[in-house]
């Protein structure tokens, strides 16, 4: 039940280079999430279960010490800690406006590792590239 169809989602940077069979494996893991203005989606220190890809909306990633960055580009990624060790969210995330995101369970995504490690690595590389282009404000990886 996606607001955007598969064709639109495939154009997102994170999914762009996937081969058809890789997409077939990943697509069932995607689910659609809507948030309202002011909603705190993630809490720092909480167990990281999903990562999100922004479809629409403006989001603030903020730390308990008051530092923050904001993301509003379609295809930006939030909550990547769910695919790393230790898997706890390293920041809080609050929606500044109402928004739409794709949610991917970190556990289910990593379960693909045994059956298609190439796919997992492709996506992780995209996530890594995205993180490195974000302003580095000294948070824990």
């Amino acid at each position: 039940m996606h607001h955007l169809d598969a064709g639109q989602i495939k154009k997102l940077k994170i999914f762009r280079d996937l081969l058809p069979n890789e997409w077939d494996q990943l697509y069932p893991l995607l689910s659609h999430v809507w948030v309202i203005e002011g909603e705190q989606m993630l809490r720092q220190g909480e167990r990281a279960h999903c990562f999100f890809v922004i479809l629409r909306g403006h989001f603030m990633i903020h730390y308990n010490d008051g530092r923050a960055i904001t993301l509003n580009q379609k295809g930006d990624i939030i909550g990547w800690s769910s695919v790393s060790f230790p898997s706890e969210y390293t920041a809080n995330v609050t929606a500044l406006t109402k928004g739409e995101l794709l949610c991917i369970s970190g556990t289910e995504f990593l379960e693909l590792l045994q059956s298609n490690s190439g796919l997992v690595e492709k996506v992780l590389k995209k996530i890594n590239k995205f993180i490195q282009t974000r302003p580095q404000i000294g948070y824990l990886q």
């Binding site: 060790f85 590792l113 490690s117 997992v120 690595e121 590389k125 890594n128």
Partner: peptide
């Protein structure tokens, strides 16, 4: 253990992808 290799490798070199 493949994920552990990835994590330990990225501690010293964040752009190192050892998973595959």
């Amino acid at each position: 253990s493949a994920r552990v290799c990835q994590t330990v490798g990225q501690e010293d070199n964040p752009s190192n992808f050892l998973l595959m």
